[in-house]
Amino acid sequence: MNTIPTSGHLVVVRDSFARKLLELARRALVSDQVIPYLGPGLLRLSSAEPPVPCTPEAVAEALNTRAPAPSKIRTNMWSVAQFIEQRRHRRTLQAWMTDIFAGPAAPSILHAWLAKLPLSLIIDSWYEGAMRAALAEAGRTDVVEIQGVTRANEVGDIWTRTYDLSGRELEAGAATKTVLYAPHGSIRPAANFLIADSDYVEALTEIDIQTPIPDVVKERRVDRGFFFVGCRFNDQMLRTYARQIMKRSEGPRYAIMDRQTLTRNEARFLAASGITVIDMPASEAVAQLAGSAS
């Protein structure tokens, strides 16, 4: 069976059905009808051993080598970061994260392909900046990046900062063809990281009423769907942000994921969000997407 409705109404497509649906997703991307939502799993497409961590658990491990956290929180990135911030100061956490993500992450063929499309909005949910690099390498001059920032370093009601691809900070609301939105921050150009539990306290309090999400993101998602690739939703933080970012969007919604690896909470989230799972290896899906457009 290629289409699998589960008890939670999760729809999974495989084999020829998956390839056909992926072709529909490709056409929707080319025509700017869906928004790419990129996760850290894409780092594995460019390198078997990525130069930077490609999971929250790997970030936690890297932080633990610098300051061992209690065993009960050792694998939780957000809690380990909070432990370091409380005992070593925010500046230390910032410096360590900057060091951990210092290695340049090469854009994958998917990043390079997306960079050439006239997309209105791209979501990059990891810190490494590969999508930003791909847009710069493509010579794009009609792009701004909006990054989430920690309130720990801010005075006033500031949730994001805006940059052009040269790294120059811009006024919020700058008009542009493509908006690259990094809700959790990024290593470049200014090492903005939402990483510790404390970074999310106010954000999660306000996110139900959408305050931390830029107006341009709210505007551009309304008549579009979402295409998730390289993502996992095995933590409540990741599910909450994805849910709020795609809130009030029109659809359709697709995700490239391995059905066998989904946790129960991930499956529930995908079903409740109306996200159809295209069950195929990310490398195969990316080859079909980028290869079809070459």
Rank of each mutant, 00 (worst) to 15 (best):
Y163K: 02
D258M: 08
L117I: 01
A136M: 06
E57W: 00
D215L: 13
E49L: 09
P281I: 02
E85C: 04
E169A: 00
T276F: 03
C231Q: 12
I209P: 00
D15P: 00
A18M: 07
A267I: 01
S46Y: 01
W78I: 08
A48F: 05
S46G: 15
E154A: 12
A105S: 11
A25M: 10
R253A: 06
V217N: 09
P68T: 03
N2M: 07
R26Y: 02
G148Q: 06
T276A: 10
R140M: 06
S47M: 09
G167N: 03
E154Y: 00
A191K: 05
I278Q: 05
F226K: 07
R168C: 05
M97S: 04
L119M: 06
Q236N: 11
P50T: 01
F233T: 02
A282E: 14
G225I: 09
T3V: 14
L170T: 02
F17D: 14
I35R: 10
S31V: 02
A60N: 07
P104W: 02
A290W: 10
I158F: 04
R44Q: 08
P183I: 01
Q147G: 01
D199S: 11
I278L: 15
P281L: 04
T98Q: 15
E57Q: 13
T240N: 13
A172F: 01
G291T: 03
I187T: 10
A112K: 14
L119W: 07
P5G: 00
H184K: 00
P212W: 12
S16G: 01
M1S: 14
F228V: 03
G39E: 06
Q244M: 12
I275A: 09
A62G: 05
T263F: 06
S186V: 02
R221G: 05
T276M: 14
S186E: 12
T263G: 15
D157H: 10
A18N: 08
D157A: 06
Y163L: 02
F269Y: 15
Y254C: 01
I207M: 14
L170C: 04
C231A: 07
L121E: 10
A190T: 02
N76R: 14
T6R: 12
K247I: 05
I158L: 13
W113F: 13
M97W: 04
T240W: 03
V143A: 11
L262K: 12
V286R: 12
E145A: 14
D199F: 09
L29K: 07
D258Q: 11
I100E: 09
R268F: 10
I35E: 03
T160M: 04
Q147I: 03
F227Q: 07
D15I: 00
G8H: 11
T6E: 13
A196L: 04
T178Q: 03
R239Q: 15
H111A: 09
V59L: 13
A196H: 11
E266H: 12
R14I: 02
E202S: 11
V80M: 14
R224M: 05
R220V: 01
Q288F: 03
A267F: 06
P56H: 05
S120K: 08
R248T: 02
D99G: 00
Q33K: 14
E284R: 11
A287G: 04
V143Q: 06
C54F: 14
A255Q: 04
I122V: 15
F17K: 08
I158Y: 04
N153G: 09
G8F: 11
R268E: 11
L22M: 10
S294K: 12
L289M: 08
I187D: 02
R239Y: 02
S283Q: 13
Q244S: 04
P36S: 02
